[in-house]
Computed example of a mutant assay.
Amino acid sequence: MTIDWLIPITHWLPLVQDKGKDKTALEDITPETVSKAADTVVGSLSDIWSNFLTHTPYMIASLMVILFTFVVVFMMRRFGRHFFRRTTSRKSLQDLLTRLLTIVTWILGLLLAAMVLIPGLTPAKMLGAVGLFSVAVGFAFKDIFENFFAGILILWHFPFEEGDVIQCEEIVGRVERVEVRNTAIRRVTGELVIVPNLFLFKNPCHILTNRRKRRVSIIAGIAYSEDIETAVEVMKTAMTTCATVRDDEPVQVFAEGFGDSSIDIEVTWWTGSTPFAIRESKGEVVTAIKKALDQAGIEIPFPYRTLTFKEPLRVEGGEG
């Protein structure tokens, strides 16, 4: 019986001791302790406010430097274009030089503002920090910087301008604007495509409107029973009536080969370089050649098929 009474007492004894410890810890928190903690917080806030007030002139001067840089950049954009128009006639190169000048101005202005804001910051330390920062940003935004430098090279050296019609892989359209990172191309079907400059820089790019004229070819067929030389002359005469065919380049009409049902004749001429000019010229030339061959009585055959059988066919007549 004595052992049974001792077990509950030993079970509740640690709890009573823990309550006594908590009561002792609460008694240790005196008003003097709370006052010291409050004084520490107030002192820290007072020091922060004092440092802020002490550093306020540097902040105001730094903001003034940034504002002055903004004004300088605005003036450079306005008068830089007029100046670069005298040095080069390429609009893309004018835009590139203006953008590079504004970027360099902003970088110098921000560096100067940082050195004004932090008096102990020297140009050497700033350049070192910028170098480390640029390496980190370069690895993080590799694709963006690749497109940026590709855009600079396109604006500087590539021969197409705004308004040119280009073809790159599956993209065919008119260039609406060339930016540092992207190029906006309006497809011939009306859609606007934003193409990364790195794509244009790495892949073959065809400038369809690099010249004002392009050579176009079509294939016309005549029956095997027709005279080839006569058909060639008829086609050449028909080409002279087409207004979209340029007369400063020769028209070439040659027999090309033996087709399945016709003698194939290649007709080549020069016309405008835009997609619309090419479609318009093809329509006019095809119409003129068809009309001339019909008037000359030269047949343009349909596909013929000759069927042969291994054994003669037997035709059975129907009952009377």
Rank of each mutant, 00 (worst) to 15 (best):
P301Y: 03
V41N: 10
K21W: 10
F158K: 00
T230P: 01
F160S: 03
N147S: 10
S89N: 14
S44M: 11
A223M: 07
T2N: 09
T189L: 06
P196G: 03
H206P: 00
G131A: 15
P303E: 12
F148H: 01
K213C: 03
A288F: 07
K290L: 01
A140T: 15
T274H: 10
D264T: 08
P119D: 07
M115F: 05
I9P: 05
D227F: 08
L13V: 13
I222Q: 00
C242Q: 04
T98A: 02
D143S: 05
T308N: 13
T88H: 06
F84W: 09
R177M: 07
I118G: 03
K310W: 06
K125P: 05
W49N: 05
R246Q: 11
W5Q: 13
L45K: 11
S261N: 12
L93V: 09
I218R: 13
F201I: 00
E146F: 04
P123W: 09
D39E: 14
L293M: 09
G163N: 05
H206T: 09
A113G: 05
V286D: 01
E266Q: 11
G163R: 11
E284N: 09
I194A: 05
P312Q: 14
D39R: 14
Q295Y: 08
T33L: 11
M126Q: 08
I107V: 15
H11F: 10
A243W: 06
F148I: 02
T237M: 15
N147I: 00
G80H: 01
Q94H: 11
V286S: 08
